Computed example of a mutant assay.
Amino acid sequence: MRRLLLALPFALMPLAAAQAADEHDHDHEHGSLGAHVHGVARLDMALDGRTLELELDTPAMNIVGFEHPATTAADKMTLALAKETLLKPHALFSLPEGAGCTATKQRVESTLFGDKDDDDHDHADGDAAEHEHSEIHGHYQFTCSAPNVLNKLDLTQLFKSFPATQTIQVQLVTPKRQMGAEVRPSNPVVKF
């Protein structure tokens, strides 16, 4: 399954390029799918058999409102509450009940949570370079008893939990299709 998620960006590269070009034409501020843009997150979704995996990548600004290491009690509390929320996948992602999906794994990582930066980049320029653009990565795995019932993903709760997130660029691969979509709080459901 991990290979499928790793291959997802390559499988959808033509779509991403077309979408990025289209976004550039309409709003030069939103760049390509891989760019660090406040308000914009990316969600990769892959269904393989009964296993559904979701990978969320978002600037920390969208989740906690800052990208610097937490030094104040308020910032530390904000980080702790955000991590707690992010570790509850059923509270973020609404899947059709008939699919019988149960969260089996969830992991959230960020340098802000004290996790090591998994980049291979050398941050020789100091801490400022390392924390200039902090990201939060979430990995969620579900086992679904009736995966053929999966036909939509509702992100309403994710938008409500983290209102600074204004756009989620979704890429998905299922046995039946590959697609990309852009969802917003006003239209938070991806149908596939």
Score class of each variant (00 low, 15 high):
1 M>L: 14
165 T>G: 02
178 Q>I: 09
94 S>F: 06
52 L>H: 01
28 H>Y: 15
42 R>L: 07
110 S>D: 09
103 A>E: 13
124 A>E: 13
44 D>M: 05
135 E>G: 01
185 P>S: 12
60 A>D: 03
125 D>G: 08
137 H>F: 04
32 S>V: 12
29 E>I: 12
23 E>D: 15
114 G>H: 07
167 T>Y: 04
56 L>T: 05
135 E>Y: 04
2 R>F: 06
189 V>P: 00
61 M>S: 10
76 K>N: 08
139 H>R: 11
110 S>R: 12
59 P>I: 01
122 D>H: 03
50 R>C: 05
176 K>W: 14
121 H>Q: 12
71 T>M: 02
103 A>L: 08
168 I>A: 07
102 T>L: 13
10 F>D: 09
3 R>C: 09
130 E>V: 05
102 T>A: 14
177 R>P: 08
150 L>M: 14
59 P>T: 07
91 A>Q: 07
181 A>C: 06
69 P>W: 08
42 R>H: 10
182 E>T: 11
147 P>C: 08
72 T>A: 00
42 R>S: 11
85 T>N: 10
65 G>E: 03
146 A>G: 02
6 L>H: 08
180 G>P: 00
190 V>P: 00
20 A>V: 06
89 P>S: 02
101 C>H: 06
164 A>L: 07
86 L>P: 00
164 A>C: 00
185 P>G: 09
139 H>L: 08
168 I>P: 00
143 T>N: 10
141 Q>V: 07
73 A>Y: 02
37 V>R: 04
185 P>D: 13
110 S>P: 07
18 A>W: 12
116 K>M: 11
44 D>W: 02
136 I>Y: 05
70 A>W: 03
142 F>P: 00
98 G>L: 01
45 M>C: 15
58 T>S: 11
97 E>G: 10
10 F>M: 12
77 M>W: 10
103 A>R: 11
98 G>N: 04
153 L>E: 06
109 E>G: 08
92 L>D: 07
95 L>T: 01
134 S>I: 05
151 N>K: 13
62 N>A: 03
12 L>D: 04
72 T>V: 00
68 H>N: 09
99 A>W: 00
